[in-house]
Design a protein around this nucleic acid. Structure first.
Lengths: 253, 253
DNA sequence: GTGCTTTTTGCGGGAACCCGCAGCTTTTTT
DNA sequence: AAAAAAGCTGCGGGTTCCCGCAAAAAGCAC
């Protein structure tokens, strides 16, 4: 039995190592990686079936690393060990987990027993182990009236990136008006208008930026999610520009 | 000699304790607090002159706790031990440190020797110890052309909160146009216009939200800074409303 | 004081945003 | 198949935002 740890913080890494060796005596080989790319590499080379990783890492996010690992070996069991239960992370993970894979999500605040139990359940019984708190977020996100659906979440990201309505329309293949509709729904669900009705015609908030801010407070967005969204935006911009060049007839005039 | 540790994460706390006891044998009493308020309390009761604290904590930020402690006993030496060197934190600290107090800022990624040396220098020699990286941020923040000055930083926060131009003007006692001037400078410094000049009249970005996003990427803002800004905004709203009520003549009609 | 820079303010207009209304298409329900 | 729900689209207009231009106002040298 082989296990791989991916964790950048040395303090946490040594703690993790301690936990794993004591909870899993049947583990014969234990690898450690200090960042995502290195972890992918090790998993690939040694055909590792059990991974524990941190979600927050510089360079390559845990989510990105997990995506790569699962693409190559979808049966890998991955335990995410994270500081936060932000909706951005939870969403990110549910988006990439293969539907027959076993995985777990444990908060770093969990007790040692809890962590060790999770390790055994997941790696030996192949049973999913999701922290209570995370479950809560997962469900809340699916609530029809409280949570945002994928489309709303998409525009939320887009405006958080700073895109214009017109650009969003272009990117998502929609009309301008449709984008604005989505935005209205978003504003509705985030209760952007709270306390704002005060007598005066004075609007207190710019809805667009206020929505982003509220989303940050509610942990619907976080900075790593935005960083990732930014690189996807860059990709899109690139291919759009390429398409524009091809479409444009050779200019002679 | 008495030392107080304020750190919420148990793993880091035990590590810190280890470091302190080995680096400071002259330390006779060592207190530990798991959150800001508790730390303030202990510092007050026991007249502690040397504190080590984490910056990122739930409930009460390290910065808020430090503010309180320094207000009561400005000669206290405080070592901030933090995961990040975000400009938001650095700014926050320089804003509150008494001008004759000794303090330090060490990143959690620093080596054990580094940390121990810092502890001795600060608590025994009363000498400020600032991490290289943090220094870098500090200087960059003061650069006339790259960094934001306080006024620009202020509007940045305000738009990040989602305020309207008009509201910002009201809050900061400025004319509408002045606010917009500040915003223009801000956009300039953040290079919001990059690559945007492409031939078409199509603006790619909404400058306001784009600026916020870029600021997040550059760590000029972070979520805890915004949370704090939000409560200050709430305060202002409250007193503004109170003022409005007093100003309004008793309505009879 | 006179000059100089920096900051603040007003005016005006083009663009973007927010959104009610109404018609159209697609999906879901019955 | 008919009805209902949900989503997409265009139109129009009220508001806010972004910013160039230019004139006061404040700060700072000499």
């Amino acid at each position: 039995m082989k296990i791989l740890l991916i964790e950048d913080d040395p303090v946490h890494r040594s703690f993790l190592k301690e936990m794993v060796t004591s909870a899993m005596p049947e583990c014969q080989q234990l690898w450690e990686a200090t960042q995502g790319a290195e972890g992918e590499q090790l998993a690939r080379e040694h055909h590792i079936a059990s991974v524990v990783m941190d979600l927050q890492m510089p360079q390559k996010t845990g989510i990105e690393a997990a995506k790569v690992i699962w693409r190559e070996r979808p049966e890998t069991a991955i335990l995410f060990w994270s500081n936060y239960a932000d909706e951005a992370y939870v969403r990110g993970i549910s988006r990439i987990v293969p539907h027959d894979a076993a995985y777990g999500y444990i908060l770093k605040t969990a007790s040692e027993e809890h962590l060790q139990l999770a390790l055994r359940s997941l790696f030996i019984e192949q049973q999913c182990v999701i922290d209570r708190e995370v479950r809560g977020v997962q469900q809340q996100a699916q609530d029809r009236h409280f949570g945002l659906n994928d489309l709303e979440y998409e525009v939320l990201q887009d405006i958080a990136l700073g895109l214009t309505d017109r650009m969003i329309a272009q990117r998502r293949n929609l009309s301008l008006r449709s984008v604005q509709n989505r935005l209205q729904q978003l504003y509705e669900k985030l209760h952007v208008h709270e306390h704002d009705h005060e007598q005066t015609a004075n609007q207190m908030f710019n809805l667009r930026t206020r929505a982003v801010h509220i989303a940050m407070l509610r942990k619907l967005l976080n900075s790593t999610a935005l960083q990732q969204a930014e690189v996807e935006l860059a990709k899109w911009r690139q291919q759009r520009q390429a398409a524009a060049l091809n479409a444009a007839p050779p200019i002679h005039k």
